[in-house]
Nucleic acid binder design. Sequence first.
RNA 1: UCCUCAGUAGCUCAGUUGGUUAGAGCGGCGGACUGUUAAUCCGUAGGUCGUAAGUUCGAGCCUUACCUGGGGAGCCA
Length: 462
Amino acid sequence: MKRIKIKELLQSPRIDTEIMVKGWVRTKRGNKNIAFIALNDGSTINNIQIVADLSLFDEALLKDITTGACIAVKGTLVKSQGQGQNVEVVASSIELYGKSDAETFPLQKKGHSMEFLREIAYLRPRTNTFGAVLRMRHALAYAIHKYFNDKGFFYLHTPIITGSDAEGAGEMFHVTTFNLSNVPMDKSGAPDFSQDFFGKPTNLTVSGQMEGELGALALGDIYTFGPTFRAENSNTPRHLAEFWMIEPEMAFYDLSDNMDLAEDFIKYLIRYALENCMDDLEFLNNMIDKGLLDRLRFVVDNEFVRTTYTDAIKILVESGKKWEYPIGWGRDLQAEHERYLVEEHFRKPVILVDYPKEIKAFYMKLNDDGKTVRAMDVLFPGIGEIIGGSQREENYEKLLARIRELKLSENDYWWYLETRKFGTAPHSGFGLGFERLLLFMTGMSNIRDVIPFPRTPKNAEF
RNA sequence: UCCUCAGUAGCUCAGUUGGUUAGAGCGGCGGACUGUUAAUCCGUAGGUCGUAAGUUCGAGCCUUACCUGGGGAGCCA
């Protein structure tokens, strides 16, 4: 007999048919005559109730059916006599695949703290919460590919190992095959990378944007979706050393087109989740964050506010509030400022544009005022900046001038500059941190709990 | 990296001005119960109080250092 997934079983239950389900025991209750087993196979957050008449089964077998054990059950699907579920399986035979010693199995029927579950990351996908989060993570990854594919974007695979310093965006992990206790040195006493695997210093990528731009200037619209790495000693609920990033890059898009895409993209993803992940969203709404569904619907139903950095500064000054960090034109906005704009002043997602060039990256297109660049940050309630992007500087001379102004190495960017020599074009793009998106979409509060195996300073277990 | 709070049973926690033998709930184990829903009821085992040093007649409690974790900040996505 072929196994049926619990999700399918519950979606279109065929009463009085013989079926077989396989999964892991969540709970077992009952008395001397009858046992009720809540079985979950990961296909859905919902369990199927297995009813076992104790007189039909070996006592030793039933004793081994404990929380966490894996079993295969054949039986008849019937309407449930009890409250709490519509259908249940009256078992005719049970096969035990894997025992789960009750004294040492760490998961209980009751809830655990997120901190404890993080220590048993090899088992936490068996919990309702992590099952829901991981199913949503999959659904949104799929929705991202579907969104871009349907719009004619091409998925570009940018390198994980790079020889360039990208935009100087933070500390990088070195990639080397050197024996670290015996590194070859050159005459000046520095490591001699000409003897290393790639013949030069290499790192794990911090962004696929620059390679993405090359793709956009050939294929039109591209996106990347892959792992990125930051070796910064950031110990916060919003940072990972290894995280996944989505970076679309579009030829012929100006900043306004870029904003339109970013807003449409995020709303599409939320709508996709509301239409396809409701079981998991309802669970998360009940158990993790009571405001989750309202907040998701609110974002879908409202236009994002678009305003300039300069106007935002004005609003912050005129608010009359006392700030821990000073406000002033030319200073970057701190978390407290962004939160005020999003959560108190506008009470909506906000897109800020036209930042001072001094506080943004060299590749952003200079505005006519000569002081600001065509940058955009999308700010969300709770998590702050969820998207950062810009129109890119496509003019060779201006780009080169910025690189020199900031005393960056021209050699490092030679290939990036070449694209501005041969058929340059206006283009734009943005980056979205996948786990930050998941924080918003699931209501989880720590980024370590929306990725299966988090990598953070001092933590690379599993 | 900085600030701050915490670390006591498998889990979540309580533990009085420093004082004899460190407690509870849940979970586990044993038992009861004719359909349970985080079942219920009775019983029971389970501890190097994060690590190291110090103060003291005496430390879970006070001091110092370190380790680990939470929250906030910076950097950022």
